[in-house]
Amino acid sequence: MKQALWGQVIKVKSILKREYEIPANDFALAGEASSNVRKILTQLGVNPVIIKRTSIAMYEAELNAVIHGNGGKALVEIFEDKIQILIYDEGPGIEDIELAMVEGYSTAPDSIREMGFGAGMGLSNIKKNADEFLLESEINKGTKVYITIALF
C-alpha cells in the first residue's frame, strides 16, 4: 500500500518548478517570465506547437498582471504530461468576469493601448490556447489565472 502511494507521489511530482516576480508597471520587462519558460521548454525538447501555445497563454496573463494587477507572481510547474501555470496579483480584481471574457472588452488605459495592447483579446486568447483555464478574482483582493497545457 505504501509502495503504491509512493508510486503515486512520484507520478505527480513535477520535473521542474519555477517562481517569477512580475514587476508592476514595468512594460519593458513584461514578458521576461514567459520568455524564460519558453527557453526551458525549448531546452526540454517540448513540441514547438505546445511551446507556442504556452508562450501565448502565459505572456497574455503576464501582461494582464502588469497592466491591471500592479504586478504579481508566476508559478510554473512542468510535469511529465503537462505544464501548470498560476499567475496571480493583488490588484483591484475583475468586477464582472463574464464581461471581461468578451472579446473586445477592455478596461486598459489609453497609455497601454498606445503600446499596442489592451484590445480586450487577452483572456479569450488565454482560454483558446490553454487546455484548462480558470480565472478567479475578488474585488480589492486580486486575480488568479490558472493555465494547464497538456504536453501530449
Partner: peptide, 17 residues
C-alpha cells in the same frame, strides 16, 4: 510589419515564433 516601436514588439515576435 509594424509601425509600433517598443520592446513588447520584440516580445510578441518571440512568443509568436
Amino acid at each position: 510589419l509594424t509601425g509600433l516601436v517598443n520592446p513588447q514588439v520584440i516580445r510578441t515576435a518571440e512568443m509568436m515564433d
